[in-house]
Amino acid sequence: MLTIAIISDIHANLPALDAVLKDIDQRNVDQIFCLGDLVDFAPWPNEVIDRIRKNRITTLMGNHDERIAFDLPTVPLKKHSATETQVRFSAIDYTRQTIRPDNKAYLASLPRECRLSFTFGESRLNLLLVHASPRAIDEYIYENHDEQDLRAMMEAKNADTLVMGHTHLSYIRSLSSATTTDPIPKLAINCGSVGRSKETKPLATYLLITLSAQSQFSPDAVTYELVHVPYPIEQTIEAIRMSHIPDFYAHFLERGHIQEFKEKAV
């Protein structure tokens, strides 16, 4: 049996990353992959990169990593208000000012995709790992994305399972079979965010893949599980407030924390 953990979108949130790595270690996971966005929005960009490098985690380049690595301009996004645009610029500038040269060079060295292949008798399962989508480092692929477009992207890359991050919203989506003779199911998966979840509960999320040793592929040969890990979110909130990062990002985490507290109290 082989177990693989896929993490993404840490966004400089060291307490969240440490909690996830501890959970992964307790599960005796064989391999860890990261889909990028190590930096921005929390005050530990160097510490997060150091942790990733120390653990020799194969990591892809996220759009935030790309911007910092190559000194790209910060472009306003249509989905953001004027206030969020301003604080976003400030938070990214914090990373620009604090990133160490060796870590900046590390971000510049990261690849944009990773392919994993596993053989079950005459069948081969092909996994494609990307930060956002197979065609762009900053494209949002939500759970309701057009299936024909998803399938076209996957077929172009010969991928049976597509694993993404970027949206901070996790899901596992089965695609309808193209042919009845194809034994490998097609899946589009978002592994969620470790450090800046946009889901209802403010938990660090990652994907756990378990592959069984079988001579032929069967439905139970591979399992996919989204794992949600609590972490000391108050520590991250307080650290943001004590830094030059706008309090907007502390409020973002605090809103989810308060909602979770209310649910527990009911």
Rank of each mutant, 00 (worst) to 15 (best):
L107M: 05
A213M: 08
I233R: 02
T167A: 12
I7R: 07
L38N: 14
V39C: 03
P183A: 14
H228C: 15
G192N: 08
A12E: 02
L203I: 02
F120Q: 07
K79R: 14
E234I: 09
T210K: 06
S170E: 13
I68F: 09
C114F: 06
V222E: 01
F217P: 02
H244M: 09
R115V: 14
K79M: 08
K22T: 14
E139M: 08
I141N: 09
D138Y: 05
R53E: 10
M61A: 13
I24Y: 02
K157A: 15
I49T: 13
E47S: 11
H64V: 00
H166P: 15
R115P: 03
S243L: 04
D18M: 06
V87K: 02
A16E: 06
A156V: 01
R27V: 08
K264N: 09
D40R: 01
L175P: 07
E66V: 05
Y142E: 12
S170T: 01
A108Q: 08
S197A: 09
R135T: 15
R151I: 11
P134N: 07
N103C: 07
I189D: 12
A5Q: 03
I237N: 14
N158D: 14
T167M: 09
D247S: 15
R151M: 14
I99V: 10
Y171N: 05
A108W: 11
H251Y: 12
G36Q: 04
F118R: 05
